[in-house]
């Protein structure tokens, strides 16, 4: 434990990196995922096709490959992202596909009748989504969305392989410094991850209960 205390500065910085990477990628994934879900149910066929294509590409590509493309592939065409920005984009774009699928399943769970009734009183497609369909879709998909975001926090560890000094990158670094401290290092890193994922899970649970009462 003394070893962890000695390296607290490193651990803290890595924790903040993982946290900000997760927050930024999560925000991107939530916004883009919602747009993808909306596009997939829209009455405009090219929009539907494009969104389906996006989801299928990112859902079926390993995250490491996405990182590789962003950080080593794009510079080949003179499009250079910083390592951290590349990590945020990779993780966010990848997770958006899963968020989009989760929200789409929620949209399908809202009765088609309500969507029809909202169009019948003259709401446009966008208004009907915003006012009637999405608010209810979000409620039904809070638990699966929570899972998607928890998986995303853990997936952020892939960034370690692409020069971002986040939590997992400390494992080889600290163990190389003192192999005898393996257990302490593992424990420290796991606890740091849990400091992000457990409050997230708790928040999701609270939110789920709150909207359940509202309904």
């Amino acid at each position: 434990m003394q070893f962890l205390a000695d390296n607290f500065g490193l651990l803290w910085d890595a924790f903040l990196t993982t946290l900000s990477l997760s927050l930024l990628a999560g925000l991107l994934a939530l916004v883009l995922g919602t747009l993808l879900a909306a596009a997939r149910v829209s009455p405009i066929p090219p929009l539907r096709g494009l969104a389906t294509f996006y989801v299928e590409v990112f859902r079926n590509t390993p995250l490491t490959v996405v990182f590789f493309f962003m950080i080593f592939g794009l510079p080949q065409i003179d499009f250079i992202l910083g390592f951290f920005t590349g990590a945020v984009l990779s993780l966010g774009l990848y997770t958006a596909a899963f968020v989009g699928e989760a929200i789409r399943s929620g949209i399908n769970a809202v009765s088609a009748g309500q969507a029809e009734a909202s169009r019948a009183i003259g709401l446009t497609f966008g208004q009907s989504l915003r006012e009637v369909v999405l608010p209810q879709a979000f409620r039904t998909v809070i638990p699966p969305l929570g899972n998607v975001f928890i998986a995303m926090v853990k997936n952020s560890s892939i960034a370690a392989g692409f020069a971002t000094s986040e939590l997992s990158s400390l494992l080889p670094r600290l163990v190389n410094a003192d192999a005898g401290q393996l257990t302490a290092v593992l424990l420290g890193v796991v606890i740091a991850y849990m400091l992000i994922t457990l409050p997230l899970a708790f928040g999701v649970h609270r939110l789920e209960r709150r909207v359940a009462i509202l309904r």
Binding site: Q114, E116, Q136
Partner: peptide, 10 residues
């Protein structure tokens, strides 16, 4: 007005 009411549940 629909057979199944279709009120906005939320």
């Amino acid at each position: 007005v629909f057979q199944s009411f279709n009120l906005f549940a939320h």
